[in-house]
Design a protein around this nucleic acid. Structure first.
Length: 952
DNA sequence: CTCTCCCGCCACCCG
DNA sequence: CGGGTGGCGGGAGAG
């Protein structure tokens, strides 16, 4: 391995060795390491910039740690130089850098490109992807030999790729994602997370300056607040809805909508506004300026206000306002620039129009990048007479307003083609979800919600009595909505998106997840995120009135509040892609036993009790904003709950009634065919599904994952064990893990019951994959996102009391062609009939632990990709075609949608008696848009650790 | 070429 | 003054 690395490296860059990581004891490596360490020592608090040099490759590989070749654009050298003269003395470093570059005429760019291009596209792609999975932080951890090992063969290639982190990889948006990944979206009130700019900068490997950019925008949304010099407090998204509401109000007050209209009108007249800037007339700037300024209350100890401008913050707020007041939710940059930037220029002291929007738009990009990371907006393009204009579309909460009317409006404007019933059902579902959380003030919460829903006779959100399977609806809606977003982003008419959508759904509160923006520029990034939205778990919850159903894990805090839910539904949040057929099989409930573990039981104070939802507008916006912003104290218990959710990879265990539900699903699917409207299918299925699910299955399964938080995991296990005895026998359980960051948007569905392995088909090729599981491609998948084949994996372990796959499951799917179809795991597709019923499996008798989690070494659960061991060989992959062939008529069917961006999916229509066993399916065709020619090739390289308890 | 936006200089301001 | 902040725009990558 080392040899290979050396050779390749040498070839590529003889003079500069980046082998240090690869070769621990190599001379060059040694030197490099020494240098690096010395630097580190000297720069314990080195400016981020220093780190950045080495970190810029974070995504690519650990090579970043090693001094890089003096590539022209690489700051590496600079960093070195700076080492001795941190930001304090920027001057020196700069010069040194230049000198160095000069002294080293080497220009690897050309060679590098050549080499890279020479390398197989697959390899490149894979490596690239792999890089994405790299831990964001803990650069020190990046050195582990283990990591090196897995890269072995292609290390050289990696090196090259890393050498030159793309501009994108260093983008503010990505950086922001990493930043957000460090903190829980909904932190516990008890947890006061402070952010040290220096620390973060170092951790993220960037200069502090960049952190300011992020923090400023976050601050404008009250996700953070400055507590002291160099210190910020993390609030999370708790107050985001309020903040947005506030901003919306402000925006309305400012008549931004009118301004926009005015501008547009003006544009038409002017043809080209670039020719000259005209001061907008009739709209006082100073007013909102002052309103938007943060007052002391918000930043008590800070001097944030000192600086008159703070334009970034203010502009950020205004920017958001524009979206909030906009009907279309789409704002073009030029318009935004005109409105915002001009306004910011409170004092036209600058006789010159130095703030030409064309120049200042870049500021908006900064803001937009952060907002994009927050999944609040997404980049789109607006086509006009004059051509294509860059714009951003609001994809965040749009109905944070507490008013039902507004909600209706939103649904009408944003989800026109969606059935209102469907939308309403989602809300109902949310309500039910609340109800399921016994510890909650369920009754109160649900009543409140229901009241809202039903208050209006004509309200589309009215609950439909007796209906069940909302999850299906949700999924459908989410899928549609998602598709809308996609389409709109692609400049397609929303109305035209009639094609079948993959069922998906999300009840998550907005959270910065990697896979959020489907085709956002950042969706590809692995973004290690320890925060997971688990709300989706409830998707699988069948019946509305399933009082017996218990959510083991407390619902996200947002779930307790209608207001929070709405946005969650509409936002382009990570969607749970559960194929409708599969979904039907997922009926189940979470055991209540989880509650204790997750901190359920604490009653969530209704938001209303805390802070008035609708506070009358106060004269000072700042004040308002400030008030709305105290998130922490208001919702203690809930936060805890939500935190649990988020911190652990979503885990969902869905007991299933094997045959019936699936049958229905399959039947529906078959009857409706692909062409059938998703909603319809879901609707139909849901009814029957509801019946099935209602009151029957009682699976006790606790799914938890350690997401960088060991204690949590332990806790979960414990609780699960405690509850074992009290649980009813479960039929079939599935552990659903929503696309952890590390999976790059892939969701994993694991059967909680051991029986799944009963009929295990031999698959010596994939020992690591002893657990039948299903990896679901995330968002934007084709109509049949799920591969559900009754494959019976070979039992990995027969150890009593221990799950077969007790050990961490590692699987990795190296670069696959975008169109390649890979089925990982026991390749054998077994006839559904042959599957053993869960109950029949003796294994069920004893408690098991099945946990799935991404390996998260970092303190915050950052995913640690590239773990050496346990890698499923791609070679073991089975082509979908094979699968389909193997499938019996009544059994699973495989649908290969093919296409570069359409992930292939295998849909297994489950036979009645069939035991829904799942196989890990890998869909290379990542929904992500790839710029490279290699297309959607994703690398799945994650260590999975399942921890699931089944009831004896 | 235009669009993006990274990068870091250096002005502000505070203590 | 020193150091934290962050405005600002040169200039280069990406398309």
């Amino acid at each position: 391995m080392e040899v290979n690395c050396l050779t390749l490296k040498d070839l590529i860059n003889p003079r500069q060795s980046r082998l240090d990581f690869a070769i621990e004891d190599g001379d060059n490596a040694q030197k490099l390491r020494e240098l690096r360490y010395s630097e580190d020592k000297q720069l314990a608090h080195a400016p981020a910039a220093d780190r950045w040099q080495r970190q810029e490759n974070i995504f690519v590989d650990r090579s970043r740690m090693a001094p890089k070749t003096p590539i022209k654009n690489e700051p590496i050298d600079l960093s070195k130089q700076k080492i001795f003269t941190p930001e304090r003395n920027p001057i020196t470093p700069v010069k040194l850098v230049d000198q160095r570059q000069q002294t080293e005429p080497w220009t690897p760019t050309a060679n590098l490109k050549m080499l890279i291009s020479a390398a197989s596209p697959d390899i490149r792609d894979r490596e690239k992807k792999k890089g994405l999975f790299r831990p964001i932080e803990n650069k020190d951890d990046a050195f582990p030999d283990s990591l090196q090992l897995d890269v072995v063969g292609d290390s050289a290639v990696d090196e090259f790729e890393k050498q030159r982190p793309s501009r994108k990889q260093k983008s503010l948006g990505l950086l922001c994602q990493k930043f957000l990944a460090r903190y829980p979206s909904y932190p516990l009130s008890s947890e006061k997370t402070t952010i040290s700019l220096d620390e973060v900068a170092v951790s993220l490997g960037v200069e502090r300056r960049r952190i300011y950019d992020i923090v400023n925008v976050l601050e404008s949304l009250h996700l953070v607040s400055r507590v002291a010099k160099n210190q910020y407090g993390w609030h999370g998204r708790h107050s985001l809805p309020k903040t947005l509401r506030s901003l919306q109000r402000l925006g309305e007050e400012q008549k931004y909508e009118e301004q926009m209209a005015h501008l547009q009108q003006k544009e038409l007249e002017l043809m080209d506004y670039k020719l000259g800037e005209r001061k907008k007339d009739g709209y006082p700037d100073s007013q909102d300026q002052q309103l938007l300024d943060f007052s002391e209350p918000d930043y008590p100890s800070s001097s944030a206000n000192s600086r008159k401008d703070k334009s970034l913050r203010i502009m950020s707020q205004k920017f958001v306002m524009l979206f909030l007041v906009s009907k279309t939710k789409i704002i073009t940059l030029d318009v935004a620039a005109k409105i915002l930037i001009e306004e910011s220029q409170d004092t036209p002291d600058h006789s010159k129009f130095k703030n030409e929007s064309c120049l200042q738009v870049r500021r908006l990009y900064d803001i937009a990048n952060v907002l994009t990371s927050l999944a609040l907006i997404k980049k789109v393009h607006v086509t006009e007479e004059r051509g294509r204009k860059p714009a951003f579309k609001w994809i965040g909460p749009v109905d944070f307003s507490s008013s039902d009317e507004e909600l209706v409006d939103v649904s009408a404007s944003v989800l026109p083609e969606l059935k209102r019933e469907t939308y309403g059902q989602i809300q109902v579902c949310a309500k039910q979800r609340l109800a399921r959380h016994g510890s909650f003030n369920t009754v109160q919460a649900s009543e409140r919600i229901q009241r809202k829903v039903n208050s209006e006779p004509s309200s589309p959100y009215r609950e439909e009595q007796g209906s069940g399977g909302y999850s299906l609806e949700i999924g459908s809606l989410a899928a549609v909505y998602q598709q809308k977003i996609e389409d709109s982003s692609q400049g397609k008419a929303v109305a035209t998106s009639k094609r079948a959508m993959p069922p998906s759904g999300s009840l998550d509160p907005p959270a910065p997840l990697p896979g959020l923006s489907v085709d956002s520029e950042y969706c590809v990034h692995p973004l290690a995120h320890q925060v997971f939205s688990v709300a989706q778990l409830d998707l699988a919850f069948p019946s509305q009135n399933s009082l017996h159903g218990q959510v083991g894990v407390s619902a996200a805090s947002a779930a307790s509040d209608v207001e929070s839910l709405k946005p969650a539904l509409l936002a382009s949040q990570p969607l749970v892609y559960v194929p409708s057929p599969s979904l039907l099989m997922l009926y189940g409930r979470l055991q209540e036993g989880l509650a204790p573990a997750s901190g359920l039981g604490a009653q969530r104070p209704s938001r209303s009790s805390g802070v008035p939802a609708d506070r009358p507008p106060t004269p000072s916006v700042q004040k308002r904003l400030g008030e709305e912003r105290k998130p922490q104290e208001e919702e203690p218990a809930p936060k805890r709950q939500s935190r649990d959710y988020e911190d652990s990879p979503l885990a969902l265990v869905m007991p299933k009634k094997p045959s019936e539900a699936t049958d229905l699903a399959s039947a529906k699917t078959l009857s409706n065919g692909r062409s059938g409207a998703p909603e319809d299918i879901h609707m139909e299925a849901q009814a029957s599904a509801a019946e099935e699910a209602s009151g029957k299955a009682t699976a006790n399964c606790l799914a938890s994952s350690e997401w960088g938080n060991p204690s949590r995991d332990t806790e979960m296990e414990k609780s699960s064990k405690e509850n074992e005895s009290t649980k009813e026998p479960s039929l079939l359980q599935y552990l659903y893990v929503q696309s952890p960051a590390g999976l790059n948007g892939f969701n994993v569905l694991l059967p909680g019951s051991r029986n799944s392995q009963a009929g295990g088909a031999p698959s010596g090729q994939l020992p690591p994959l002893g657990i039948p599981c299903m990896v679901l491609p995330s968002p934007t998948l084709g109509p049949f996102p799920v591969l559900y084949s009754p494959t019976v994996p070979r039992p990995v372990s027969s150890a009593a009391g221990v799950l077969p796959g007790a050990g961490p499951v590692h699987f990795r799917v190296p670069g696959l062609g975008s169109t390649a179809h890979l089925l990982i795991g026991p390749a054998n597709v077994v006839n559904p009939k042959s599957s053993t019923l869960p109950s029949a499996d003796p294994q069920l008798q004893r408690p098991r632990l099945l946990g799935l989690s991404l390996e998260a070494p970092g303190p915050h659960g950052i995913i640690q990709p590239g773990s050496p061991g346990c890698v499923a060989h791609p070679g073991s992959a089975v082509k979908p075609q094979q699968v389909s062939r193997a499938l019996s008529p009544g059994g699973p069917s495989f649908c290969d949608l093919g296409g570069p961006h359409v992930p292939s999916v295998a849909v297994n229509t489950v036979a009645a008696e069939q035991t829904p066993e799942v196989t890990v399916a890998w869909f290379p065709a990542c929904p992500v848009k790839h710029r490279g020619p290699s297309g959607g090739c994703c690398t799945l390289e994650t260590k999975l650790l399942f921890s699931c308890q089944s009831v004896p």
